[in-house]
Amino acid sequence: MSVTLQVSSEVLDVRRAGSYFVISLTAPGIAEIAKPGQFITIAMGGEESSMMLRRSFAIHQVQSRGVYGGTLDIVVSVHGKGTKWLSERRRHDTLAVVGPLGTPFSLPKSPVSCVIVGGGYGSAPLFVLAEQLRDRGCRVDAVLGASTEEKLFGVLELKRLATAITVTTDDGSSGFKGNVADVLPELIDRVNADVVYACGPMGMLSAVAEIATRKRVFSQCSVEEAMACGIGVCMTCVLPVIGDDGVTRMVRSCTDGPTFRGDRVRWSDVGTIPEDTYGAPVSGVRS
């Protein structure tokens, strides 16, 4: 079993990036062992907080050595009260962190052609991935999409890491006017892609997985499901995924995921229990 740590982290820096906040924190032990696609959870609002549930964040950058020992960066999009609280943290504040969590992206053994696709802050975990793919001699083409320019994350940085980058925005404020699914098929053909890695909203992942499967390209998607525990004990974060034996099961996205093979997730059935799921109600009449 993989190692998971519970640590007290110190906030080193909070800075703005477009409409996001990038938070650097010490994460002794976690930074050293984190793999691309894994995430951390952070407790919100201190010991007496009325927010009982931890929030999940993809590990964006890691530094395993330095003045502070292991440190890592997360990218925070302010969504509700937890992420708002987090964005208001300042240098030297402490955070209760658990990680690294989840199944990482699996990396190709040989130098193949890879496309990485990020939607909004979904690009956060793709930077370390891109680096490691490059280290393995892979070609890495990136597609970053968002509704509007300020919601793109890390275009400049990714330009440095990727062989080439395509940007899309729904409103056309930056790059191609449209979404990642509009440019992906042509890109896959042009670079003769072997693998597509994606992280972003469920709708985007569903479209990317469908395109990759249609083009017979292997895909890995990192999903975002609401989680209560993040460590595999509560069963809130499940979605229907087809196993090696062809059987659909409701699997935990926090431990079995967040990265799944795109062709194995039953995207259009997410949010339901498909009738042929292992253990599904037989009669349909069920509490």
Binding site: L53, E225, A226, M235, T236, C237, G279, A280
Partner: peptide
């Protein structure tokens, strides 16, 4: 048992 459909949880004040 497959359990129920998602969403399966909602955070509430000091609980869920």
């Amino acid at each position: 048992r497959s359990g129920r459909a998602t969403p399966r949880m909602a955070e509430t004040p000091s609980g869920m």
